[in-house]
Every structure is written in structure tokens, then in C-alpha cells.
Computed example of a mutant assay.
Amino acid sequence: MGETSGFLGRPGGERLAWRRVAGAGPAAVWLGGFRSDMAGTKAQALADRALARGRAYLRFDYFGHGESSGDFRQGTVTRWREDALAAIDELTDGGDLVLVGSSMGGWLASLVALARPDRIRALVLIAPAADFTARLIEPGLDAAARAALAADGVWLRPSGYGDPDPITRSLLEDGARWSILPGPVPIEVPVRILQGGQDPDVPWPHALELAQAIKGSDVVFSLIKDGDHRLSRPQDIARLIGAVEEVGG
């Protein structure tokens, strides 16, 4: 049947773009990172794998990301969590899910697992940025950044991936509502974490803290010593697919 696509209506007239592969479950669900989209290398590799092997797979763009509608600057962790919950509730068949979360998507995957524990078979997390607003952004705010947030409600953070990242005061304030560290995090399904040792955005000790905070015993943390944040090299993609298959996705 190939991959189908469409838009999911959301409150306020917004629309979430999605793509879906019908196949055997448990379905893998891609949760992307901050300012990334469902057309990225890892998300596409998982789609190609689902098509080749007849596996169920869903990917989507959060509000203000990729092909979805909305102003990114109005996005918050609350809103993106709600998007993820709506996507799995309305676009999957009710069976078990393997959540595959990258960077911010690792935090959101954890929040979704806490909200829908009966649906989740396992988590596969790539450089999971749990609590990134409070733990990874706020400690690095200098006087100029704090002044911009106070005066304008937004700070344009330089990015190594293109245009600056708009960091809003509402994003930082809202993120505190969803803090899961230092734990314990009551997730007891199998969890696989892939983390680059040369990641400048999510240092490996931060990802390891999440691994240690998760209550379940079947948690495997894989440090890819020469890996970066994206972990999109062919060997990294192979590890990702292997982890998804190991947990049944």
C-alpha cells in the first residue's frame, strides 16, 4: 500500500501533518526533536524499513514544525505533548506502540509513555533531552539572553544547524511543568538509549541521568563514543533500526 499522508485537525483550526505506513505491529512512532521535522534522515530511514518489512509506522510534525501549521514561537512542551498524544490516539489502531524519540522527542516520548502506559511496548531514545528547558538551556543564559527574554519574550539562540533558535519565555516557563528529572521516572517497559559521546547539545551524562532515573530494569544505554547529536551516519542508522527491532517494533 505504500505510505499515506494527511493532516490531523487540532484545536484553533491548526493542522498536524502526518505520514503513515500500514503493517504489522507494534507500530513504531517517530517523535522528532526541537525544530526538526518528519522528513529527516532517521525518520525517513524508519519509514523505508517499515515499507520494506511490512511494519506499521507513524511519523508527524508538531505544531509549528515542518509541514504542520502554526507559529513555532507559540509552541510549548504542553502543546507538543498534546500533539503527540493526539497523533497516537487518532492515527494508530489501539495496539502496542514503540516510541522512537530524538532529542526533545525523547522527553516527549517519556511524557507520552507516562500518559498512555497501557499502549507502550518500549522506548527507543536518541540523545534524549529530558527537561532540556531547565537543564540545558537556562543554565547557559547570559546577561544579554536574559535581557532579551525580559524585554521581548524571546531570545534568538545561535544554532549550529542553521537559523537561530527562537527561545521564548513561555517555552521556558512551561517546560518546568513537565520536569521528570532527577526521577524516579515510572516507566517500566524496555528502553534503549543511543547517545553520542561528542554531542554538544545533549551531553552524555545528561542522557545517562535519564537512563538511571527510569524505574524499569530493562534499560540499555549505548554510548557511541565518536557520535554527534544527530546520530545520522549509516552506522548510527543501523544501530537505531537494530534497537527498534530488538524491542519488537
Rank of each mutant, 00 (worst) to 15 (best):
A148V: 14
W107H: 14
W107N: 05
L141R: 10
G105T: 04
R119I: 02
I126H: 00
A148Y: 13
G105C: 13
L108D: 06
I126S: 01
L123D: 01
L111F: 07
I126V: 15
W107E: 05
L123G: 05
F132K: 11
P117C: 07
F132C: 09
I126D: 00
G106R: 15
S103W: 09
V100M: 01
L114N: 02
P139A: 11
A129Q: 01
L136K: 10
A127S: 15
R135G: 03
E138F: 09
L111W: 05
P139V: 02
D142W: 10
A147G: 14
A144W: 13
L136A: 08
D118P: 05
A122Q: 10
A130K: 01
T133P: 02
L125F: 13
V100D: 00
S110V: 02
A129G: 06
P117Q: 08
A113G: 03
V112H: 12
A130I: 08
I120E: 01
L141W: 13
A144H: 13
G140F: 13
M104D: 04
V112Q: 11
M104N: 00
P128W: 01
A144Y: 12
G106L: 14
G101S: 04
L125H: 12
P128R: 08
A134Y: 03
S110P: 00
S102K: 06
R116W: 11
V112I: 15
E138D: 11
L99Y: 02
R116D: 02
R116V: 07
D131E: 05
A148F: 13
M104C: 05
G140T: 15
A127D: 14
